[in-house]
Amino acid sequence: MRSRMLPYWLLLPAALWLFLFFLIPFLSLVATSLYDPDGSVLTGYHVTWHFANFPDAIKAYGPHLWRSVWWALIATALCLVFGYILAYTIAFKTGRWKNLVLVMVVAPFFTSFLIRTDAWKLILGDHGWVVHALQSVHLLSQDGRILATPVAAIAGLTYNYLPFAILPLYTSIEKVDRRLIEAAGDLYASPFRAFLNVTLPLTMPGVVGASLLTFIPAVGDYINAQLLGSTNDRVIGADIQSLFTTTQDYAAAGALSVTLLVVVLAATLIYVRKAGTEELL
């Protein structure tokens, strides 16, 4: 009897943790999203099942939500491209330097996320070398800038989430049996075809993992937009943050949070299902 119950006992701490720190806060967030929108610190907040919070919030902040999703998608795509090339190189080409290069991928984590993002202000700033270089080859006009544009914000997102893409990609590329690539070559596949027909499909689990680990945090991220983007291009994370802490419009903040959560969840499910049925099995 004891041994049959043992797995459940072992699950208990984790289940309890999830219950206390995920499920309860989540339900409380859902409750918040259904507050009476006229509530205030003085009058108090009450759950009035006010579903109109959702259309109201989406109407007011929809474009910001859109921008967040769009930027996160671009950053995820860039992370996948750069991450794949890097991970492939690390797995197949670095030989005995492999571990050193992997440490270098993780090394930026030893510095704070905020400091690293702030440092990009110097790199992308109007007097930084990137702007000068682009101006000198006329890719950027003389009064053109990068800082405080969507380009800078997306570059920041890409930079910050790149390691989260590299690591799962590296793990799956490293596992690919080189003999399969050899076999593809033996069966008339050029190196490029061998990559498309063998390596890429076999590394799809890594691609899916990398996309999720990049996209999900990038949608809610507002540090990059705040430090590197323009104040005119607000993202949903910034809205939620200011609605909760500054405006104290908890109903709208809650509704936006739940909407964001549903959007990310839906996107993830569709993506995993699509990638899963076509490539993973």
Binding site: A184, D186, S190, P201, L202, E279
Partner: peptide
């Protein structure tokens, strides 16, 4: 280049493509 030779190999460990069906492996 190996992919241009009129030569095919049966590898020691078979090296079958794990993500493809038997028919797709054979058609490769």
């Amino acid at each position: 280049k190996p992919y241009k030779r009129p030569v095919n190999t049966v590898f020691q460990n078979y090296a079958l493509f794990p993500h493809l069906t038997i028919a797709d492996n054979v058609a490769f």
